[in-house]
Write a protein that binds this DNA or RNA. Structure first.
Lengths: 159, 159
DNA sequence: GCGATAAAGGACCATTTTAGTACTATTTAG
DNA sequence: CTAAATAGTACTAAAATGGTCCTTTATCGC
């Protein structure tokens, strides 16, 4: 449990961004799933599965048959992190009851709710603000700030 | 799968905010875990487990023995959503490899990374911006729910 | 001191989610 | 026609999650 905590995206979604980044780097050329797998080092069946999903969501365009493959459906500037997450995991919502309109089972006694929406919106904006290009470009050796031995990203308040 | 997707906090963390909200509403009075369980409708062992965690993280203060119980460690204005999440789930990080210092297994081929940090920071800020009081006050439709006689929307000093 | 109360801390189990695999059908270039 | 490649579906293994139980320790009231 040393790993990251909440608010994580699933590993598959993370892979998804890697795949899309590869397609973006390929400048519109059609790449087969196998090619992408080789290039990214992600297992072929997994790549295939992900690209299928991304196709269904309209982020990539597929061409079937011999010499077929995948390419981005639109300019990588126009694909946001939110798009990728939506495609692979469904709509973003931080709590179960704040996202959908169905009833929370503790509705009567639950005194928490409204402010999560605000948080949701903020997160949404952050995700929409980052494009595939950003994800590609901001790639750097990472001078990750470190606090003590802790791999924390953001400053943590004193305890 | 109708439910919320990624970026959700776990149910336990959600419960945690409910528990803390109840303690906030109790204005510093000591509440036993059993009381809180009754008041919130959350299963007693679960409440107990959560309050233990919150105690270890310094968000609540425990008193053992007869007439013991829990109370908030500090003013509810000073407890943020980020605090609660940190306490119950560890540090927030959206991807596995952006949060920890361990190597991503696809390091050589992975072209994604940097921009997630920016997203992390944005999310972090959103979470730090919302206090327990906000979570209480922005309470929705449910008009003045009362819990075993206790009104839950206690007005505490506004800011 | 004694007994009741209540938290602390672990160990443990059931269920759900997630990740990954396999197999079959369909489409298309040559 | 055949080979290459995606589409779709079903299945399995592994991990995280949620929840329960039990034993120990501390405190209060008598």
């Amino acid at each position: 449990m040393v790993d990251s905590g909440v608010l994580r995206i699933s590993r598959l979604t993370d892979y998804g961004t890697v795949l899309l980044a590869h397609l973006a780097a390929s400048q519109g050329a059609v790449c087969s799933a196998a090619d992408v797998a080789t290039a990214t080092g992600i297992a072929a069946p997994t790549v295939s599965k992900l690209l299928k999903s991304l196709g269904r969501s309209g982020l990539v365009i597929s061409t079937r048959g011999a010499n077929g493959g995948y390419r981005l459906a639109r300019d990588p500037h126009e694909i946001s992190a939110a798009d990728v997450i939506d495609a692979l995991e469904g709509p973003v919502s931080i709590t179960e009851c704040s996202g959908s309109d169905r009833q929370c089972e503790h509705e009567g006694t639950c005194s928490v709710g409204g402010a999560w929406q605000r948080i949701n919106v903020a997160i949404r904006h952050a995700l929409e603000d980052v494009s595939l290009i950003d994800l590609l470009r901001n790639n750097r050796p990472v001078p990750q700030p470190r606090i003590g031995g802790l791999p924390i990203n953001v400053e943590i308040k004193s305890r």
